[in-house]
Every structure is written in structure tokens, then in C-alpha cells.
Amino acid sequence: MSGGSVISPEDRRRLGAVAYRILGSFHDAEDVIQETQIRWSQLDAEQRSVIREPLAWLTRVASRIALDLLGSAASRREASSGIWLPEPAPDEYLGVSHLASDPSDLVALDESISLALLVAMETLTPAERVALILHDSFGLPFEEIGRILGRTSAAARQLASSARTRLRSRPADDPQSAARDQVVLAFQQACASGDVTALVAALAPDAVSRADGGTHVVTATRPIVGADNIARYLLGLLSREQSRTDVVSEIVQANGCSAVAVFSGQMPIALLDLAVSHGRIREIAFIVDPEKLSVLRRR
């Protein structure tokens, strides 16, 4: 627990977990932690001594900073000509200290940090996202969430409820399991071999692929829809990379789920995160922005 002017490693992990889920960006979460640290260190010893629950204070401050950053980030993403996707985070950003105890609430730990869910959360308003995450993943009471959002507790409860309803309208993702691993393996093998028929078979007929190259890599600026279109698009891109002798694909863990990463030597050059429903791939998050791939490692 933080007591002096420096936030403890345990509390940093907690703040990182909160900020990452709100923002979907490891680098932005780091900025939130740094700004929270500055505000904590600016308090003198007497001011810190009257804060009965330092972690609650830190969480409140970090959540407000993240909310402001999310609002500005959402405006930048809407103005961008390309597609924005979340980035995978290191393991220390993925744990949480408290999960919601109500089984009717949204998510368990493993799903709360899946890239597929973070993509879906982009459809929520910033206030909805913050209310949902702070309550369902971190167990904060709505009275406290209302203070963070500048709303009443009843309004905060309604925001979380509307966000939960919207996310539940999407098809349920298959949980991480041996069966899901087989789907991911079939996808990887089809991509590696260039077998368009096998790749189409691994995809749902109405599958959607979104690609994010950031400002560094040119990608499709709109989602690719349909199994056949996606298969030919992906194989066209991957065949150009795989013509290089040092390029390999591997199954990796990304935010608690198996995914396919492409490496050039030891350097990651792409991550294909797969949302699997009923044994078929429903959505692909195709991340090739090098700034978002730094946490990936070859086995």
C-alpha cells in the first residue's frame, strides 16, 4: 500500500489494470500512472496522512485522468482515416484485485482483458465504459463511480447497465479452451500453407477483419467482411511477408487468449487476435502497428 511519496509496485499494478481496461492502450495506461504519481507526490505528508484509503484515492484520480484521456482519444480515433485497435498488454497489467461478485454482471477476469472485448468496448461512450469497468471488474460502488464521473449513483448504475446490455447483444465468444486452441491452430496452419479453402472453413461466413497499422503501416481503412474476402486479403498480405526466409508465425498468448503472431527473426511484425464463436472465427483484430507489438515475444 502506498504510504510515502512514491506509489507502491502493488498499487501501480492495480492502477495499470484499471487504466488499461478503460483505454485499451498499454502506453496510455503508463501515462495515466505517471500523472497519478505526480499528483500523489505533490501532496505533502500531512495531506497524505488524512487520506484513509490511499488506494481508493489513487484509483479515483487515475480513473478521472483515464476518462479525460479516453474522451480526447475517442475524438482522435474518429478523425483518423484508418482503424484503431487496442494493443496487447504485459501480464502485470492484466490482473485485478477485486472482481464483481454478482454473477449477472458482465465478465470474469479472463474475458475482461480479451482484445475482442476491448474492441467491442469501442462502441460504448467514455462514461459507459468507465462505469462498467469500475463496477463489473473492480467492484467499485456506484456512489464512488458517480463521483468519478460527476454523476449521481443512479446515473452511474444506468450507464453500467446500458453498457452491459449493449455488449451482451454481441455473439458470445468461446472461452479459452483446448477446442478454441484447435480453431486457432487450424487458422495458423491455413495461413502458413496458403490454403484458402481451409482458411475459409475456419471463418464464420459473415466474419469481419479489422486492421490497424497506426501511422507506420498502410492497411485497409475499412473492415473486410465475409470469409472469402478475408481469406484472400490475409493470404495476399501474408504471402508477401512469408517470402522472406526469416518470417515465421507462432501461436502466442495475447491478453489471456491464444492468438497468432508473425515474427521477422525475433521482431514481431503482426498479431492476429481471433474472436471465436461456436467454433468459427467471427472477428479478427489484425494489428501491424509496430508500436503496439512490443510486448510480444517468441517462445
Rank of each mutant, 00 (worst) to 15 (best):
D28S: 15
S239Y: 03
V260N: 09
T245I: 09
S75G: 04
S2H: 04
D228C: 01
L109I: 09
R76W: 12
E92F: 14
L132I: 03
A89N: 00
N255E: 14
S161N: 09
R14Y: 13
V50G: 02
I33H: 02
T165R: 10
Q37W: 06
R21G: 08
A192N: 08
I113A: 14
P88M: 12
A131F: 07
A285K: 00
L115M: 12
V200R: 09
F263T: 07
A231G: 04
S97N: 12
A231V: 05
R60P: 04
D181T: 05
V96P: 01
W57H: 14
I38A: 12
S294Y: 12
I51K: 04
V130F: 13
G256R: 01
D273F: 06
M121F: 07
D136T: 08
A202C: 11
I148L: 05
L23N: 04
L15Y: 02
L296N: 01
R170F: 15
E53F: 14
L106T: 02
A116W: 02
P141T: 11
R14V: 15
R157A: 13
A66I: 07
A160K: 01
A231I: 05
A19L: 08
H98I: 09
D102P: 03
T245D: 13
E53H: 14
A73R: 08
A116M: 08
L234G: 02
H216M: 14
R64T: 10
T197F: 12
H27L: 15
R14K: 03
L234V: 10
S258M: 08
Q266M: 11
L117N: 06
R168N: 13
D102M: 02
A270S: 14
T125A: 15
S5N: 12
I113W: 07
S97D: 15
E92V: 09
S258A: 15
I145C: 08
R298M: 11
S80R: 07
G82M: 04
Y20I: 07
L132Y: 05
S2L: 05
